[in-house]
Design a protein around this nucleic acid. Sequence first.
DNA 1: CGCGTCCTTGAACCGCGTCAAGCCAGGTGG
DNA 2: CCACCTGGCTTGACGCGGTTCAAGGACGCG
Lengths: 236, 236
Amino acid sequence: MNKISCKECKTKNCFIQQFCSSDWIDVVDQKKYYTVYKQGQNIIHEGAPVLGIYFVQDGKVKVLSNGITGRQQIVRFANNGHILGHKGIGNDIYPISAVAMEDSQICFVENNTLHDLFMNNPQFTYGVMMFYSRELRKIEERIKNIAQMNIREKIAETLLLINENFGVNANNELNVHFTREDIAAVAGTTSEQVVRQFTDFEEEGLIAKKGRKIEIINLDKLKKVIKDLNPHTIRA
Amino acid sequence: MNKISCKECKTKNCFIQQFCSSDWIDVVDQKKYYTVYKQGQNIIHEGAPVLGIYFVQDGKVKVLSNGITGRQQIVRFANNGHILGHKGIGNDIYPISAVAMEDSQICFVENNTLHDLFMNNPQFTYGVMMFYSRELRKIEERIKNIAQMNIREKIAETLLLINENFGVNANNELNVHFTREDIAAVAGTTSEQVVRQFTDFEEEGLIAKKGRKIEIINLDKLKKVIKDLNPHTIRA
DNA sequence: CGCGTCCTTGAACCGCGTCAAGCCAGGTGG
DNA sequence: CCACCTGGCTTGACGCGGTTCAAGGACGCG
């Protein structure tokens, strides 16, 4: 975990820099809370006490819930400019884990500093409020999808989500490698079903398997797999 | 729809009164945006343009998503002090509908007033931010449940949710009447499955059917139906 | 080149959605 | 106050989709 200061951090998605006056940037800077997490590293541990929240400066993160039986569910993704771990009240614990999907630069702001930021920077509070509002809207749309789609649609939806959040490279291959197990954990099914569906999608010319990479051949057709797509859903 | 002014409204859960200085309460008051909706009445129509947001002063509301095929999904509940419809950017449309489950007193704040409130009352922005944060946390926990629970668990979860949000009367009967169809729309299944499961629950002594009312006999056992209950979930 | 991890495929089982038919509660009107 | 009627509730039978179990293959790292 490589720590850097706020001023060194030049990414344009920095919530602090974006919304706070310069003296507040200095305050955060002094505490050197910016950290680089390696691929696969745990950023938040489910069950750990909430000491503050995390801003993703630059990186790709999966947010997941484990529970007792251990079968994991990927709840959402986070990338540049997103927030991990929600502001709790009192002595809360994190109900989810967050894991870096690639090397990620994360900014941790502990509760006291966070409280000061909120109290002294209305623009900052407003920015965070808007972020939560957007996320809530997105996840409410997903609830219906998860509850009512069949496996074929859920897996198509998952590919679309990964594409929207993490994008593709020059060859139209998904940027971040997800195992079949990961995909299943987003869609809420098993890796076997993912494999079978990928074979079908390949035969239908929607995707192609390149070694372990997935190439998106026909994005439009992939979207059309989801018949009951809410007309009001905004898709990248 | 019976309109009353802000000053007449004496409910303690009023976001505006709670977080805003008195001159701002006056501003809202002048616009007389407080309205009483009858049971079953639509508060928000899916697909309609976002003109502002709604605060639930006093009442019980279901938030649902329809989609094209029409099968409805109840996404969450809202009661006193909750917010309906999220702050959008630009010319957005509501991705969900909201329906009053009983006569409800709702406060509508249109975009311009809302913007002024945010800009001039940091406490108000902070309050809304915290609300969204809590809701997001709750719904992230639900995603896993919906994706991985079996029908039995989903229906138990639904009863718990209704109990937490709307409570029971002196006889331990659920306060608000939900049709089997409604319950199915929360759990993501069919009314037939709900019926079958209710019969099982009754045989096991967890609930009792009193005419069309449902009495909760053993809340603890009902909670234990959900084997994989996240240990970090906070339950009422 | 060898090993471990991930991927793939097949087969069997079963939970749950669907359809169809009958029942009951509670509201309405005579 | 009773009889009817309608919308919601209940039950059974059936078949499909999806999970589970098992075994073999392929990729990619050291």
